[in-house]
């Protein structure tokens, strides 16, 4: 199991291959549909972003409310394709990692290769399990968005799988192909 810590550097990611299981430790940001829209609107207006994306990881999640004494509620990944139209602009700002679930557009995949970035999947629907890897959470922007606000969270050994690596591989294509090939041979 490979271990990554944030902030990420391009050198950390160049040996990652689609299908690798990785754990992440450090601060990462949460953002989903509405927050992405606002971030990209700021960029289009030439304004500064409320978060520093240099070497950052964004986790696509809208958690459930935290119970008293807990940092966060259940927090599994949301489907990533809804962020595709905003993602290239954020990668241009230094973003190096994304965690979500589901397919990305060709444009996003190309940009991942160009920037040496990576797209990870966390297990969709394993929100109670993932919650245990999140040690602290603080809203850093767009509090009015509730579950969709941008949070800075500290994760310890957050388990993810590499889907799109910096070399253009895609686990959603290769994993299925390998399985079907194995099935044919067995």
């Amino acid at each position: 199991m490979k271990k990554l810590t944030t902030p990420l550097k391009v050198e950390d990611l160049k040996d990652l291959k689609a299908g690798d299981n990785v754990t992440i430790t450090g601060y990462i940001y949460t953002a989903r549909d509405a927050a992405h829209k606002r971030l990209v609107e700021l960029l289009e207006e030439g304004k500064e972003l409320p978060i520093d994306l240099e070497g950052a990881i964004i986790y696509y999640v809208g958690p459930t409310p935290a119970r008293e004494g807990e940092p966060i509620g259940s927090a599994g990944p949301t489907t990533s394709y809804r962020m595709d139209s905003y993602t290239p602009q954020l990668l241009d700002q230094g973003l190096l990692g994304m965690i979500g679930k589901g397919k990305r557009s060709q444009e996003v995949k190309d940009k991942i290769v160009e920037k040496g970035a990576v797209y990870f999947a966390a297990i969709g629907g394993a929100a109670a399990l993932i919650k245990k890897a999140i040690k602290s959470a603080e809203i850093v922007a767009y509090e009015d968005l509730g579950a969709e606000a941008i949070r800075k969270i500290y994760v310890e050994d957050f388990p993810v799988t590499v889907v799109n690596d910096a070399h253009g591989n895609d686990l959603y294509q290769s994993g299925r192909k390998e399985y079907l090939q194995w099935l044919k041979e067995n």
């Binding site: 259940s74 929100a127 919650k131």
Partner: peptide
């Protein structure tokens, strides 16, 4: 975990 801790199994 969801059952034992009485937390939502999915954030959605």
């Amino acid at each position: 975990i969801a059952k034992n801790d009485q937390v939502p199994m999915c954030q959605d």
